[in-house]
C-alpha cells in the first residue's frame, strides 16, 4: 500500500482555473468574480486534507472474451474501451484519492448562510482538488513504474468510458477499509463526495494515450465535453 498526503500548492489550482471551470475565460466577467474565487480558494487551501492511496496487483488474470480482469479473486467487468487500454498490462494499480470532507463542509455552510454562489464555487474547488489529486497520484504510479522499467496507461474510473459504476464494490474490496477516509455506501457512492477511484495499467506493452476521448462517444462527460462541465 502506498499512501500520500498532497500539499495544496502541488495541486496547481489557481483562481483562473476555477474561473474557467465556472465557465469564464479571462474576460470581464471573470474579473468580477476573481476576488471572491481567490478568497474562497484561500479558505479551502487552509483546511483541505488531500489524500491518495494506491495498491499494485502483479497477478492480473485477463479474460478476452468476457472482458474481465481478476485481481486476487476479485472480478472487474470492464467494457470494450477500458479492456482495450488495460488488457496488455502486467500489473494493475488500484487507487482512491480525495479532497477530504473539509471543502464540502465549507460549501454546505455557505449554503446555510444564504450564499449559494460561494457554495457553488467551493463545490467546484472541491471537484478540482479531487481531479488534481488523481493527477498527482497518477504521477506517483508513473514514478513507481519507471523504477520497474515499465510504462503506464491512462487512469480509468468505474462509471467513466462506459465502465459500470457498480464495479466500485470490487475496487473497494481490494482497498483497506476507510482508505484515505473514503467510504463506499450501498449505492456505490463515495463519501467524501469529492473523491475519485480507478485503475492504472502497468506493463512493457502499455502506453499512455494523450487523447483518450477519441475512443468514446459520450458527449456529457467531464473529459469529453468541457463545455458541459461548465454546468
Amino acid at each position: 500500500m502506498n499512501s500520500f498526503e498532497f500539499d495544496f500548492h502541488d495541486l496547481e489550482i489557481d483562481a483562473p482555473s476555477i474561473g474557467r471551470l465556472l465557465g469564464y475565460g479571462e474576460g470581464n466577467l471573470y474579473n468580477v468574480f476573481s476576488d471572491l474565487i481567490r478568497e474562497l480558494l484561500g479558505n479551502a487551501s487552509r483546511v483541505c486534507s488531500v489524500k491518495a492511496e494506491y495498491r499494485i496487483f502483479h497477478a492480473a488474470e485477463w479474460n478476452d472474451k468476457a472482458k474481465t480482469v481478476t485481481l486476487t479473486g476479485v472480478v472487474f467487468r470492464l467494457n470494450d474501451i477500458v479492456y482495450k487500454q488495460l488488457g496488455k498490462a502486467e500489473s494493475i494499480a488500484i487507487f482512491v484519492c480525495t479532497a477530504g470532507p473539509e471543502v464540502e463542509k465549507l460549501a454546505r455552510q455557505a449554503m446555510e448562510d444564504g450564499d449559494p454562489l460561494a457554495c457553488c464555487i467551493y463545490d467546484i474547488i472541491g471537484s478540482a482538488i479531487a481531479e488534481s489529486a488523481a493527477r498527482l497520484l497518477h504521477d506517483e504510479v508513473r514514478k513507481a513504474a519507471v523504477l520497474m522499467a515499465k510504462n503506464i496507461t491512462n487512469r480509468y474510473s468505474p462509471g467513466y468510458c462506459g465502465w459500470d459504476v457498480s464495479d466500485q464494490y470490487a475496487l473497494f474490496a481490494l482497498m483497506p477499509d476507510n482508505s484515505c477516509g473514503v467510504r463506499l455506501n450501498d449505492s456505490a457512492l463515495m463519501s467524501p463526495e469529492k473523491s475519485v477511484s480507478g485503475m492504472i495499467g502497468i506493463g512493457r506493452d502499455v502506453s499512455f494515450d494523450p487523447y483518450p476521448c477519441s475512443l468514446c462517444h459520450r458527449t456529457e462527460c467531464l473529459f469529453g465535453n468541457p463545455r458541459r462541465r461548465q454546468l
Binding site: D115, L117, I121, Q230
Partner: peptide, 14 residues
Amino acid sequence: RKEIYVPQMLMAAK
C-alpha cells in the same frame, strides 16, 4: 442557452 453560467444564475437567485 449557455449565455450565462452558474454564478450569474446564483446571483439572480440571491
